[in-house]
């Protein structure tokens, strides 16, 4: 398919430690098309941020990509040197992180940071870059841009700062944006504004977006497809509506049931007993089997893998767990 922007195949990220090698991301395959938003959802430690970091080439040593391939519009990027990767980051892949304060330099005016980033990725003059910065700030919905461009980050509210970060990510018109919990630090009303902005940009510019979050509600309202991660593996991948309304994996179903409803009175929330295993203690077979009400002998023995959409669950794959 020509429209595939990001193609991740069998990605494995490992952290060698004194007590052995920990697998933080275990055999993940996913694609994102032009203008598509893929939600990557999971609880803390599921490996969702690690997947994003691996794609950006920002794994903290000793973390490393142990196997698999990452292609950006057909070009392999996981084998690039750090120097080559620096020109891919920013120019072809933009990044938005949870805390807008750490993504901005507090000592420089936001305009200068935008101009510097634009000039790094283009041949524009200072004046041209400033005009472009003003356009970008307008595009992400910052009011009174002529005055605001010479403000420092601390003079902006949290929501406005996140808009600046999005403008920064857009400077080089990247093919792919990786947004890691972009709305988690924001209040609900601001969160809605930021997700709407992301959706509009994605639609207008045809940018592919990987939206990493723990919040299923944000995914349901924003993403086209969703990948559910558990203990470093892909539990389920599919269209948002299918996954939210008809989850195939018992973990996804449990996750949905544990979210308090805005409409129904629930006497008790559904609970998944226990907690996600630590990386060093992932059980054999399906990583979810000790917490799964339907687990059988096969689930304790063999790791279920699903190619393409669907659930990595023996029950969903073969109809039996014996």
């Amino acid at each position: 398919m020509t429209d595939t922007v990001l193609d991740v195949r069998n990605l494995r990220v490992e952290f060698p430690t004194r007590r052995g090698v920990l697998t933080a991301v275990d055999d993940i395959s996913l694609t994102i098309g032009k203008g598509e938003i893929l939600g990557v959802v999971g609880e803390s430690g599921a490996g969702k941020s690690m997947t994003g970091m691996a794609i950006l080439g920002l794994l903290e040593p000793p973390g490393r990509i142990a196997s698999g391939e990452i292609r950006l519009s057909g070009d392999r990027i996981d084998t690039l040197t750090e120097h080559q990767m620096q020109s891919v980051r920013g120019r072809r892949i933009g990044a938005i992180f949870q805390d807008p304060l750490t993504s901005l330099n507090p000592l420089f005016k936001v305009g200068d940071q935008l101009v510097e980033t634009i000039r790094l990725h283009s041949t524009l003059t200072r004046t041209q870059a400033r005009t472009r910065a003003l356009d970008l700030m307008r595009e992400v919905g910052i009011p009174a841009v002529e005055e605001r461009i010479d403000n420092y980050p601390h003079q902006f509210s949290g929501g406005m700062r996140q808009r600046i970060v999005i403008a920064l990510a857009l400077c080089a018109e990247p093919e792919l944006i990786i947004a890691d919990e972009p709305t988690t630090a924001l209040d609900v009303s601001i969160q809605a504004q930021i997700t709407a902005l992301l959706k509009r940009l994605c639609r207008d510019r045809g940018t592919a977006v990987m939206l990493v979050t723990h919040d299923m509600g944000v995914i349901a309202e924003t993403a086209d497809r969703v990948a559910v991660m558990y203990a470093g593996r892909l539990a389920e991948l599919g269209n948002v509506e299918d996954v939210v309304r008809r989850p195939q994996h018992p973990y996804t179903a449990g996750l949905m049931g544990s979210i308090p409803s805005l409409r129904k009175d629930m006497h008790e929330l559904q609970m998944i007993p226990g907690s996600m295993p630590r990386l060093g203690a992932i059980p054999s077979g399906c990583a979810f089997n000790p917490r799964c009400p339907q687990a059988g002998p096969k689930c304790r023995r063999d790791i279920p893998r699903s190619d393409g959409p669907g659930a990595a669950c023996w029950l969903a794959l073969t109809g039996e767990t014996a």
Partner: peptide, 19 residues
């Protein structure tokens, strides 16, 4: 503005302004 799993408001226009 709260994201709603049961009936996602995918095309809503969020309210402007901040606290």
């Amino acid at each position: 503005t709260i994201p709603d799993l049961e009936s996602p408001k995918r095309d809503r226009a969020p309210m402007g302004g901040e606290v």
